[in-house]
């Protein structure tokens, strides 16, 4: 849970960090990834791992393309105005959700796990797939970190994040950067969804919880802070899982919300965010 949440939240944080856009539709990109994973896994012949691997490649590309199109068709026209884009992404949320309901239907549908082995120890057992999810999420996050800190594309993103106008004055096509970042954020949510659908079923309303928890994570970690997002995802993901199992999911959400309220009161920039 924490690993998948980290992936989803990093996507949201990246979009806000570079574009200053609060993407309320981020959970729907997660849902779109899950639903697309069901389509891909259902239509790719062969063993479950073949369909799963195909979904892991195809879903981020499809969802990323949808996000890039939404950026160019809607957000760019609003000149990325922070308030207008909140309203626009709320609209996008409903468009994606209702499109999924129309095309995919109201049913929750499972996607088979690529493998079913587990680690059995004398005192407890552990799902091999869940361990693989943690490893895959860690690898993807490492890839994102390397992209941002070790590549020219990452340098261009960071420069655009600091000062969009000056970036343009040095030959950076910031419209393309924004479209790419929005697509990357959505693709990360889609990857998280592909990893989670063998554990949770794909459903057209499944975007709400990831969106809420992602906001919780990025507010606690500090909007735009990759390090803060990872730490907060670990704390919130683990606590949500443990409290949900031993007490109730509602209590987990209440405590997470109280934690956010405390952060907003005592450290509004988040635990790792820079003071504005």
């Amino acid at each position: 849970m924490a690993a998948v949440l980290a992936l989803t939240a990093v996507g949201l944080s990246l979009v806000f960090g570079v574009m200053r856009v609060v993407n309320v539709a981020h959970g729907e990109f997660f849902m779109l990834g899950a639903v697309t994973a069901w389509f891909v896994a259902t239509h790719v012949p062969g063993p479950p791992w073949a369909g799963f691997l195909a979904a892991l490649v195809i879903c981020p590309l499809v969802v990323g393309a949808v996000a890039a199109a939404a950026d160019m068709a809607v957000l760019k026209r609003l000149n990325y105005d922070p308030e207008a884009t909140i309203v626009a992404t709320i609209g996008l949320l409903y468009i994606l959700q209702q499109t999924a309901l129309t095309v995919y239907g109201p049913e929750a549908r499972p996607v088979p796990a690529p493998f079913a082995w587990s680690i059995r120890l004398p005192w407890f057992g552990w799902s091999g797939y869940k361990l693989a999810v943690i490893a895959a999420a860690a690898a993807i996050l490492l890839g994102v970190w390397l992209l941002l800190t070790r590549t020219r594309a990452g340098l261009v993103m960071r420069a655009t994040q600091v000062d969009r106008e000056t970036a343009r004055a040095f030959g950076i096509d910031t419209d393309r950067v924004y479209a790419g970042v929005f697509a990357l954020g959505a693709a990360l949510a889609a990857m998280a969804a592909v990893l989670i659908v063998p554990i949770q079923q794909a459903h057209y309303l499944m975007g709400h919880d990831p969106l809420l928890l992602s906001f919780v994570v990025v507010i606690i970690g500090g909007l735009g802070s990759l390090r803060g997002t990872l730490v907060a995802a670990l704390v919130i993901g683990l606590s949500d899982g443990v409290i949900s199992v031993f007490f109730s999911p509602t209590l987990a959400k209440i405590l997470a919300t109280l934690f956010v309220a405390g952060v907003l009161v005592f450290r509004p920039q988040g635990l790792f965010g820079a003071r504005a």
Partner: peptide, 26 residues
């Protein structure tokens, strides 16, 4: 080439990275 008023450097980026942005343009 443009040197804006107030310099408008990419503050969190290193000196090398700021120069790299300039080099990339052409």
């Amino acid at each position: 080439g443009y040197v804006p008023q107030g310099r408008r450097l990419f503050g969190p980026l290193t000196v090398a990275e700021n120069l790299e942005i300039g080099l990339m343009a052409r």
